[in-house]
């Protein structure tokens, strides 16, 4: 049971972290419109995973909060947006964007591995509730990974070789 508790905590932390990071990236790259909009949507997916984890955790004697609490203080949020708009005509943010997408991908990958482990633990203990949680949530994590990978693949040639 300890292993499961560890994984639930790790996932709860990981999905919360990814929610925050996706939200921050969406704001930081407001002038990269596709990144802005899709990252905001994907933050919603992670927020939902946090809620599901919190719901299930109670059955395992864990008290994990259900709010991803990603709302940044209004000032920070406005600052990030304005900073993004102020440099919209410059090329340096491109490298920052690739770095952010890479970090998002690694964060999602870590979560994915944890979901994989949770699903394996659930099968080994024939725990249908836990397996249900992992099966419901893992696909969204894989889609987050594919999206970051696709964006990196599509944007890299121009950002890394352009003027």
């Amino acid at each position: 049971m300890n292993g499961v508790a560890f994984l639930l905590r790790a996932l709860h932390h990981g999905e919360k972290h990814l929610t925050r990071h996706l939200t921050a990236v969406a704001e930081r790259h407001r002038t990269e419109h596709e990144v802005h909009h899709v990252a905001t949507d994907l933050a919603g997916w992670s927020r939902e995973q946090v809620r599901c984890l919190s719901e299930t955790a109670g059955h395992y004697g864990l008290d994990l909060d259900d709010s991803a609490d990603t709302r940044l203080p209004a000032l920070v949020s406005t600052f990030r947006q304005k900073a993004s708009e102020a440099v919209s005509h410059r090329s340096e943010p491109g490298l920052l964007l690739l770095r952010d997408l890479r970090e998002l991908h690694l964060g999602a990958t870590e979560n994915s591995l944890h979901w994989e482990m949770l699903a394996q633990a659930a099968q080994a203990t024939r725990d249908d509730r836990l397996l249900g949680l992992a099966s419901a949530c893992h696909p969204a994590t894989l889609r987050q990974m594919r999206w970051t990978n696709t964006m990196i693949k599509n944007l890299s040639p121009q950002i890394l070789t352009g003027p």
Partner: peptide, 9 residues
């Protein structure tokens, strides 16, 4: 977007 950013000239 690339034109805005300056990589398309």
């Amino acid at each position: 977007r690339y034109a805005e950013q300056g990589s398309i000239r």
